[in-house]
C-alpha cells in the first residue's frame, strides 16, 4: 500500500499556475527526492503535503492528495493533526529562541502533555534519533541558538521526530551547511528511513543519488520523470531530465 498518493494535483498562486497535473505515489519507509531547477514547483509540492501553503492568501489547490488513504484537503481534516503526522524540516535551521530542551519539548507542550518524566524521555529519545544526544546531553538548558548550524539542523530534526510523525518532509535540509554537517544529515536520513517515510527536496544531485530510493524530476510545474533513483541517474528516459542531472542546465 502506498502511504502518499497524489492524483492530478494542480496548484495556483492567484493566476500563476505553479503545479500541473501532478500524480505520484510514495511507499512507506522510503526516501523520495524531489529535484529540478529553481521555480519548478518541487518545494510547493512538498509544502502541499502538510498544507504549509494554507496561510498564503492566493493559494489554491485542485486534485487529491491522500495520506494513509485519507484526502488531506478534505473537509473533516484537522490541519494540526495532519502536521503532527507529516513533520517538516526547513532549509535554514530555525530553532526557537529557547533552550535545547524546550525546542524538542515544544511539540509535546502544544499537545498538552504535562508529565515531566515522559517529556524528558521523549526529548532524550528524539535527540538520540537525530544523533545529537552525545553532543548536547550536558547543555540541554543552553540556548539552542548557541549551537552550530549543523547541530541546529539536527535539533530541528529531533524536534520534528518528538511529535512522532510517520512522514518527514525536508526542504533542502543541508543547503545551508558545510560538507561535514551535510554528511551527518545524509547519514541520519538513511537511518531514519527504517522508521519514517522521507520526502526531500534537494538541489544537490549527488545527495539525491546518495540518499533516495526514488527521484521525481520537476520542470516548469510538471512532473517530468519519476522512477527509481538508480534508474534515473544511469538511464534517464527524458532528455530534459538527462540535461538537468548531468548539469547542462539548472
Amino acid at each position: 500500500m502506498k502511504l502518499i498518493v497524489a492524483e492530478d494535483v494542480n496548484v495556483y498562486y492567484g493566476d500563476n499556475h505553479v503545479l500541473r497535473d501532478i500524480s505520484l505515489s510514495i511507499s512507506e519507509h522510503t526516501v523520495t527526492a524531489l529535484i529540478g531547477p529553481s521555480g519548478c514547483g518541487k518545494t510547493t509540492f512538498l509544502r502541499t503535503l502538510n498544507r504549509m501553503n494554507d496561510y498564503i492568501d492566493s493559494f489554491r489547490v485542485e486534485g487529491k492528495i491522500k495520506i494513509d488513504g485519507k484526502d488531506i484537503y478534505g473537509n473533516k481534516v484537522k490541519v494540526e493533526e495532519l502536521r503532527q503526522k507529516v513533520g517538516m524540516v526547513f532549509q535554514k535551521p530555525n530553532p526557537f529562541p529557547k533552550s535545547i530542551f524546550d525546542n524538542v519539548a515544544y511539540g509535546l507542550k502544544i499537545q498538552g502533555t504535562k508529565d515531566k518524566k515522559s517529556i524528558g524521555e521523549r526529548v532524550e529519545k528524539s535527540l538520540k534519533q537525530a544523533a545529537l544526544w552525545n553532543e548536547v546531553k550536558d547543555i540541554l538548558h543552553k540556548p539552542a541558538l548557541s549551537l552550530s548550524g549543523g547541530q541546529q539542523q539536527r535539533l530541528c530534526i529531533a524536534r520534528t521526530l518528538a511529535v512522532k510523525p510517520s512522514i518527514v518532509l525536508m526542504d533542502e535540509p543541508a543547503s545551508a551547511l558545510d560538507p561535514i554537517s551535510t554528511a551527518k544529515i545524509e547519514e541520519l536520513i538513511l537511518e531514519l528511513k527504517e522508521n519514517y517515510t522521507i520526502v526531500i527536496v534537494t538541489h544537490n544531485m549527488q545527495q539525491a543519488a546518495r540518499v533516495s530510493d526514488r527521484t521525481a524530476f520537476f520542470y516548469m510545474g510538471e512532473l517530468v520523470e519519476y522512477s527509481k533513483t538508480s534508474d534515473m541517474f544511469t538511464n534517464p528516459k527524458n532528455k530534459a531530465t538527462e540535461n538537468y542531472i548531468t548539469g547542462r542546465f539548472g
Binding site: 504549509m52 513533520g87 526547513f90 530555525n94 515544544y106 502544544i110
Partner: peptide, 17 residues
C-alpha cells in the same frame, strides 16, 4: 521572522499557540 512561525505550524501548533 516567518521561519519561526513556520517551525511552529510545522509541528502541529495552532495559530493561537
Amino acid at each position: 521572522p516567518n521561519t519561526l512561525r513556520e517551525a511552529s505550524y510545522g509541528m502541529g501548533a495552532t495559530r493561537w499557540q
